[in-house]
Design a protein around this nucleic acid. Structure first.
Lengths: 230, 230
DNA sequence: CACTGTTGTTAATGCTGTTTACTCTACCGT
DNA sequence: ACGGTAGAGTAAACAGCATTAACAACAGTG
């Protein structure tokens, strides 16, 4: 990479880093071009050399956040031996929660309605699918190994839901899972998502304060219901 | 109520109504004092006679949204005979989802990170507890009637979680429930919350499009797991 | 009928994103 | 080695934002 390109890339990274810092320190409202430029010893219009608009910058932050979340989850999963499906699921969801609690503003950027007037453009879609794809792979691996207990999972799935779920699988390709298995996976995802968003956004605090115990409980329920051994 | 007070109250309501309309039409970004005043044929500073600041107006909107949500859920629950605990739970959660899908921007105001720089003040707390209190009452009623199946609910609750849950009950008063029952209720709440927020914020659409079938499935899982007959 | 508090106005301040016109400088091809 | 050029930065300006201050008009009450 030519020097020119390299220093430019470094500036782009610095802008995003400063934006993230300001966001973490003062909330999403503090992400103003002028404040970022001031921190960097520049003027606001200079930032337009690097991002077409403030929304473009936010979009980059959203994409980065999705990727950081997926990276954290993938690293956690890969630290567990491939065969131990239960522990891999625990690791994935645990990393999801840990990342959310560790970077609440970035978590909010993704899963809250981030910034007024800003709607996530299509460009964030691929990054946003990474962590759900990971969860899907976990489910598919466990199913391929026969580790899922069909007797427990086989909730009677109504035909309408089965059709939707099968259409989804055709769209996304990859290994085909039975509708009840995929429906179970979607349910597990929603459960964890609900618990973690409630906790990160402070809605859970009035009830249990620290949500760790409740989260681990929910994790055990999921693992036990799936019939995964470990 | 004297006439003076009455017209003032009407103006307050009009301001909030216009704000809600703009929010629904153009997103939370459109909630600007100038735009509201313009729509009402006034100037922006006049609004300060009714709300101390823009944040105060947003706080009022948040409180109203919480109350509307609780009203909708209470109405749905009361339409079901007191004894049919399963159907009452279905009605409550169904109303929760319907309200969220019906007023997505107000839903986001409550459950997303609403507006940059805005953090919900303590004043919204009482209204925010109404719908969770309703869910708690539903659980307590079912338990008092002996409608919950202890054999299915009695997931082994670790001591740490049991302690937290019991402390929560002491703080809030009301009937004391066994820790496993309350933990089950919190889990059910989180599941529904997760599914509905995913759906309302558009994260579920790529997977299943219409989330109705998945939601009803999840509802059945909850009701069946609780052992409620109907 | 005069007084007073309420409701509204205009003008001004200091933010914000964004565009335009301009300067400077580092690199690239000859 | 040197002129041309693309890139990076600046200052100035515009429109819109929340908010405050000073001021005008009106309604209700003594």
């Amino acid at each position: 990479m030519p020097r020119r390109e390299r220093v430019r890339q470094a500036t782009v990274e610095e802008i995003k880093a400063v934006a993230r810092a300001q966001m973490a320190a003062e909330g999403t409202a503090a992400v103003t071009l002028r404040a970022i430029a001031r921190e960097m010893g520049m003027t606001a219009p200079a930032l337009y050399r690097y991002f077409g608009s403030r929304d473009d910058l936010v979009t980059a932050l959203v994409t980065d956040a999705y990727n950081a979340l997926a990276d954290a989850m993938e690293a956690a999963v890969e630290a567990v031996p491939p065969g131990r499906h239960g522990d891999r699921v625990r690791a994935a969801f645990g990393a999801f929660r840990a990342w959310g609690l560790g970077q609440p503003t970035e978590f909010a950027l993704i899963f809250g309605s981030p910034i007024p007037g800003y709607v996530a453009p299509e460009a964030t879609r691929p990054a946003g699918l990474r962590y759900t794809d990971l969860l899907g792979r976990l489910l598919a691996d466990a199913h391929a190994d026969g580790a899922l207990d069909p007797a427990r999972i086989d909730l009677r799935v109504p035909p309408a839901l089965a059709r939707q779920v099968e259409a989804f699988q055709r769209r996304r390709g990859g290994p085909a899972l039975p509708a009840p298995v995929l429906a179970f996976g979607l349910g597990a995802w929603a459960r964890v998502h609900g618990l973690v968003t409630l906790e990160v956004f402070g809605h859970l605090a009035p009830a249990v304060g620290d949500g760790t115990a409740l989260f681990e409980q929910e994790l055990e329920v999921i693992v036990r219901q799936s019939g995964l051994p470990d």
